[in-house]
Design a protein around this nucleic acid. Structure first.
Lengths: 259, 259
DNA sequence: ACTTTCAGTTCGTTC
DNA sequence: GAACGAAGTGAAAGT
């Protein structure tokens, strides 16, 4: 940790920011501020306690005291401007494409920290939609007994079909895989079936493969003669279980609840 | 700021966490850690420098040195467990619905801070999709000269139609408004047109109103006889310009670029 | 560089 | 409480 400055003056904080913002440092500023954004839309946020975080790739986050998401942000900053005056420290974070700017007006500063973080490790994750695809390729009977895969990501005029195959009777079958299916998913599947029926001049089955389905969408599928196959995400995850899993957590204190 | 502890020992840090995590405090821990997640999917993240942020509504964020988004998170934690042992401090953040857990194993701690932030101010924003809707209601000629609005959010068996109206010749017209249109938008519009044609037994126009459109989707619209009207978001934003906008930023230092 | 699609999406609103 | 849809979506993968 290069710096930990508690309640610095505006000039001292500005010096630190001017030095470290444009370089590959993680900079944190806690304090009261107002924030305005102008670009793809416009927004304005009145004074409040916030934590400002500038990451080493110049990502800017303005976090409030709650919520997963920041109250304001700039995913990538091309040009910084730091100024003092009028009893405030101002930070302007400008991006060129798309052109947008976040302005922060700090009226008091509790803490400034500067550090360089090293994090080369990759996030290994299992349970994405692509894992369902791979599971189907490996064991096509997930879709149905006797199902045979013909193509993946097959292009049609209406977009890409996830999986194209034939059932045990040789009937052409369109399979749409979705982690979180919605109404559009059903429309999409219907459209694919129409496309393939036109191309092959014959009846085509359409199957949605997903972990769950709302009643409404299920009803739409039924009306249209489309089918639904439920997959258990636990099975998918278990097939691709992570190696080197953490173990031996020990000596826990008593559990306690939030609130 | 209640606490600023630089390089605390595991036991001291654990005491602080056990005291403040379950209450309405913003807690920050900087240090090297491994993270694993298990719930809707499974993920594993090896050791690296991270900033852990626990907000007053129990939202947990594990931020790395880059990127807008956290590397791991828990939007709402119901039960915390903090433990020490094996040269590490472990934090378990469990959520009950959906059931999922984030485990953090800290092998070194650089900084712990605890604070209570107050932020009551509301984010005022202009330029959402709903603002396009309102602009059309106010000045229907945005869609087309002579356009008359008949209904908004009209229900059909295929979902809700954004805007239903009649053009200057009295022809029924379905309008779909999208801030970020994609292929599904076109499918949806087509579906609505089909529904309304069936209901009114006559030709129905379909118009997509959006700030931009990819060539591919535009081509699909053309094939189907659907239309596209471009709206300038700047016009929309100006119609609903924010009051009390920030001004008088002064005494900026010289601008400098990232890199 | 642009387009398309997914996300442990999150978040809000509505039914 | 479930479900539907937007987001200043962001991020990754394919073209």
């Amino acid at each position: 940790m290069e710096h930990v400055e508690e309640e610095p003056g505006f000039e001292a904080a500005a010096d630190t920011l001017r030095e470290y913002l444009p370089r590959d440092y993680t900079v944190q500023v806690n304090g009261k501020c107002r924030v305005s954004y102008s670009g793809r839309t416009q927004s304005k946020l009145d004074r409040g306690d916030r934590m400002i975080l500038v990451k080493q790739d110049s990502a800017l986050l303005v976090h409030g005291p709650d919520n997963y998401q920041p109250r304001n942000w700039q995913p990538e900053v091309d040009r910084w401007s730091v100024g003092t005056g009028d009893g405030a420290l101002t930070i302007e974070a400008r991006r060129l494409d798309p052109e947008e700017v976040v302005e922060i007006e700090l009226s008091s500063i509790e803490l400034v920290t500067v550090s360089q973080m090293v994090d080369e490790s990759e996030l290994k994750i299992s349970g994405h939609e692509v894992d369902i695809h791979e599971a189907i390729e490996e064991t096509p009977e997930i879709v149905e007994d006797g199902f045979n895969l013909v193509a993946r990501e097959r292009k049609t005029p209406a977009g890409y079909i996830d999986v194209l195959g034939r059932d045990m009777d040789g009937a052409m079958t369109v399979v749409e895989v979705k982690r979180n299916p919605d109404y559009n998913t059903a429309l999409q599947l219907q459209r694919y079936v129409d496309e393939i029926e036109e191309e092959f001049s014959g009846d085509v089955r359409g199957i949605l493969v997903a972990p769950k389905l709302s009643d409404e969408v299920d009803g739409y599928l039924n009306e249209r003669g489309l089918e639904f196959v439920e997959v258990d995400m636990d099975d998918i995850i278990q097939d691709y279980k992570l190696q080197d899993s953490q173990s031996g957590l020990s000596d826990f204190g008593p559990e306690y609840s939030t609130g």
